[in-house]
């Protein structure tokens, strides 16, 4: 006999898969979008350290790459904290969808 829907629920509502929120995309919340301007990037990684949404991708060498737009909520902390190069920001915020 097949089990009822509620019989399949995990006992005590325990979540068994660690980090499963990665399946829940929050990128759709964004109204502003960070733009990475690589030539102005000094790879300080402040954007990575201060991102509340773990949405700055870093490669095996420890260098930042493109944003993870599946999760970036567009808060703009990265852009504000970006020191840039010679006064030119490596991250700027743009209106989403434009």
């Amino acid at each position: 006999m097949s089990k009822k829907f509620w019989e399949e629920l995990p006992q005590g509502s325990v979540v068994l898969e660690a980090g499963s929120s990665a399946e829940f995309k929050t990128g759709g919340w964004r109204s502003m979008r960070p733009k990475w301007i690589e030539e102005n990037c000094i790879q300080c990684l402040f954007c990575w350290m201060y991102c509340p949404d773990m949405s700055v991708k870093v490669n095996a060498e420890g260098k930042r790459e493109e944003f993870d737009f599946d999760f970036c909520k567009g808060c703009g902390i990265c852009a504000l904290e970006c020191p840039g190069k010679k006064g030119n920001k490596a991250i700027v915020m743009e209106e989403e969808g434009k």
Binding site: Q11, G12, V14, V15, L16, A18
Partner: peptide, 12 residues
Amino acid sequence: NPLLDIDNPKSY
């Protein structure tokens, strides 16, 4: 589902 099974982390 013990929490102390640190190799298989659960959220309670």
